[in-house]
């Protein structure tokens, strides 16, 4: 049954351990630590440079204005707002990603959530609908580019009023920008806030 090597194990000198330890460590370090990431970088840069470099978005003048994958701190009443962001001293800080790490029972969480609700109500006093939860909570990365479709719909009346356009027009824009789950199940109903606000700006 057992055709594997049956040679009795012998106890070798110390160098018999140290020498292969060094050769194997150095070789595998060079292969997995240099050759592999550099080869991946070359292939990625040659075949998918846009994604590999951050899916950056440029305006008509060729200036970078953001990334399709990274949220920004939209805070004007005439814009759609994104998630709360807990990236240290300023929101949506792309060099300091992270969440609030506030526990569910922490009073500081209730405070942060209430502050967002107050800001939303202040900007749109007439809106008495319940606030979608993703609009009052901080994302895990602090860089979440999306909001739920519910969170976008919630903001439609405010944005329409401030921009002096019809709600139907804004609503249609949300629907056009939104992405829905694959086959209705796989993924989430969401809207990229940057894309939505850009589309909104180009209406004028």
């Amino acid at each position: 049954m057992n055709t594997l090597t049956q040679t009795a194990a012998t106890t070798p000198a110390r160098s018999a351990i140290l020498r292969p330890a060094l050769t194997v460590l150095v070789t595998l370090t060079l292969v997995t630590g240099l050759a592999y990431p550099l080869a991946t970088t070359v292939v990625a840069q040659l075949t998918m440079p846009n994604q590999a470099n951050g899916s950056l978005i440029v305006d008509e003048n060729g200036k970078v204005i953001g990334s399709a994958l990274i949220g920004q701190a939209f805070d004007k009443p005439g814009e759609f707002w994104g998630r709360l962001s807990a990236t240290g001293d300023k929101p949506y800080n792309g060099v300091n990603s992270g969440g609030s790490n506030l526990g569910p029972s922490n009073p500081a969480l209730i405070k942060a959530v209430s502050a967002r609700i107050d800001a939303l109500k202040k900007a749109d006093p007439g809106n008495t609908r319940p606030v979608p939860v993703d609009l009052v909570t901080a994302s895990g990365s602090g860089l979440d580019p999306d909001i739920s479709l519910a969170a976008a719909y919630y903001q439609v009346p405010r944005v329409a009023r401030v921009r002096k356009i019809s709600e139907a027009q804004v609503q249609a824009l949300v629907d056009r920008t939104a992405s829905r789950p694959l086959f209705g199940y796989f993924g989430e109903a969401k809207v990229n806030v940057l894309a939505l606000n850009r589309a909104l700006a180009s209406l004028h």
Binding site: S100, N101, R129, P130, P132, V136, S139, L149, A189
Partner: peptide, 22 residues
């Protein structure tokens, strides 16, 4: 606090603190 945490075709709902919309 008047927050909508119910799942629907428009949102995931639930405990979204620390989670990503996607």
């Amino acid at each position: 606090l008047g927050i909508d945490q119910l799942a629907s075709s428009l949102q995931a709902g639930g405990n979204m603190e620390g989670k990503e919309v996607r």
